[in-house]
Amino acid sequence: MLKNPERNEIRSILQDAKTIAVVGLSDNPARTSHSVSKAMQDAGYKIIPVNPMIDEALGEKSLKSLRDIPDHVDIVNVFRRSEFLKDLAEDYLETSAPVFWTQLDVVDEEVFNRLSSKGRTVIMDRCIKVEHSITQP
Results as ranks from 00 to 15, higher is better:
D68K: 07
N113D: 15
D87M: 12
T95R: 01
L88V: 02
T102V: 05
I69Q: 06
E56L: 04
K61N: 12
V76L: 01
K61H: 12
V73R: 00
V50F: 02
S62F: 03
L66Y: 04
Y92C: 05
E90K: 14
F79N: 12
N77E: 14
D91C: 04
K61G: 00
V111N: 06
L104F: 07
V50D: 04
G59R: 11
T102E: 01
A97C: 12
A89H: 02
V107P: 00
R80I: 07
P98H: 06
L104H: 06
A97K: 05
D108E: 08
K61S: 12
S65L: 05
G59Y: 07
E94L: 11
E109Q: 13
L63I: 05
V111R: 06
F100D: 02
D74K: 09
L66I: 07
D55R: 12
E94Y: 06
P98I: 00
E109M: 11
N51T: 01
D71R: 11
L93Y: 01
D108F: 02
R67F: 02
A97V: 05
S65C: 08
K61Q: 14
A97Q: 05
I69H: 08
N113L: 13
K61V: 13
L85K: 08
V78W: 06
F84K: 14
F84A: 15
L66P: 02
L58G: 09
E94I: 00
I69L: 09
L85A: 09
E60W: 02
D91T: 10
Y92N: 05
S82C: 12
L93G: 04
K61W: 07
E90N: 12
M53I: 06
E109W: 10
V50E: 02
H72V: 07
I54R: 01
L104E: 09
V106E: 01
V76M: 00
P52N: 05
V111F: 05
